[in-house]
Structures are given as C-alpha cells and as structure tokens.
Measured scan of single mutants.
Amino acid sequence: QIGDLVNIDLDLEIVQSLQHGHGGWTDGMFETLTTTGTVCGIDEDHDIVVQYPSGNRWTFNPAVL
C-alpha cells in the first residue's frame, strides 16, 4: 500500500521477465535492485509505482516486490 517500503529480492533476469507488460525494464532501473523504495502509487492496471531516494519513480509488476 502507499507509503510501504519495498525491496526487490529477485535475480535480474526474473525481474526483467516479470516486467514485460508492466512498464518494461530500462538500464536506469538497476538502482532498484540494491535500494529500498517507497510505494507512492498504484496505477489503473494495479501495477505499483515506487519512488527511490534518487528521485526516480519506477512502475513494477506487484510480483516483483
């Protein structure tokens, strides 16, 4: 839910696979593998929007978090 702290604890290849159809994966997202983020929103597809200390916001398949 919004305000929750979240981490990704999966291998890169699994995360990339799960992201298909959920915003995809870009090289800029590598920070998300090692950094705790804060849930800042849930979109119309029930994907999770997470903000990181860098100021970046990324959209994830809920199965990734």
Rank of each mutant, 00 (worst) to 15 (best):
Q51G: 07
I48Q: 04
H22K: 07
V6Q: 05
D11L: 01
W25N: 00
D11A: 12
H20R: 14
G23L: 05
I14T: 14
V50W: 03
L65N: 02
I14R: 10
N61V: 00
V39G: 08
N7K: 09
D27Q: 14
V64T: 12
L33A: 05
F60Y: 03
L12W: 10
C40M: 14
D43P: 06
T34N: 13
I8G: 03
D9H: 06
N7S: 14
L18D: 04
G23D: 03
I2Q: 09
G21C: 02
F30A: 15
Y52A: 03
V6A: 05
S17W: 14
G37K: 02
G28H: 10
V6H: 06
Y52K: 09
G23R: 02
C40V: 15
T38G: 03
I48M: 11
V6K: 03
T26I: 10
M29E: 04
T38M: 14
Y52C: 12
T35E: 13
V15M: 09
E31G: 05
T34H: 10
P53A: 08
D9A: 09
L12N: 14
D45L: 09
D43F: 06
D4E: 14
G21A: 07
I14C: 12
D4G: 08
L65S: 01
E44D: 11
R57Q: 09
H22G: 04
F60E: 01
G28I: 00
G41K: 12
L65Y: 08
T34S: 15
H20V: 15
L33I: 06
T34K: 15
G37D: 03
D11K: 08
I8L: 09
D11C: 02
N61Y: 09
I8A: 03
T38K: 13
L10D: 14
D27A: 07
G41R: 13
V6I: 07
D9T: 12
V49P: 00
I8V: 07
Q19P: 04
Q51E: 15
D27P: 11
A63H: 10
D9R: 10
N61A: 04
T35P: 00
R57F: 07
Q19N: 10
I14E: 14
T59K: 15
V50K: 00
I42G: 02
T59P: 02
L10A: 11
Q16T: 09
L12P: 11
D27L: 06
S17L: 13
V49D: 07
G37L: 00
D4C: 12
V39Q: 07
V6C: 05
N56Q: 07
D11M: 07
P53F: 01
C40G: 07
G23P: 00
N56K: 06
N7R: 11
T59G: 01
V64L: 11
W58T: 04
I48S: 02
G41D: 15
L18S: 04
N56T: 07
R57T: 13
G24K: 01
L65H: 00
T26S: 14
T59M: 04
A63R: 11
Q1V: 12
G55Q: 05
V6D: 04
V6W: 04
I48C: 12
S17V: 13
P62G: 06
N61G: 00
Q51K: 11
T26V: 15
G24W: 05
S54K: 00
Q19K: 03
G3L: 00
A63V: 12
L12V: 13
Y52P: 08
V64G: 01
D43V: 06
G55L: 01
L33G: 03
L5Y: 13
G24T: 00
H20D: 05
V49W: 02
V15T: 07
Y52T: 00
I42L: 09
N61S: 04
L10W: 10
V64R: 06
L5S: 15
T38S: 08
V39R: 02
Q19R: 00
T34I: 10
P53C: 01
H46T: 07
Y52M: 00
F30Y: 15
A63E: 15
L65W: 05
Q1E: 15
A63M: 14
I48P: 01
G28Q: 14
L12K: 09
V39I: 12
G24E: 04
G23Y: 05
V64M: 01
G28S: 13
Y52E: 01
I14V: 13
T26Q: 14
T32G: 08
D45R: 15
S17C: 11
P53W: 04
W58S: 06
L5K: 15
V49F: 07
G37W: 01
F30N: 15
N56V: 04
I42A: 07
G3S: 03
E13V: 07
D43C: 05
Y52V: 01
V64D: 00
G37E: 01
D9G: 08
I14L: 13
G24D: 08
T26M: 10
E31W: 05
T32M: 03
W58C: 03
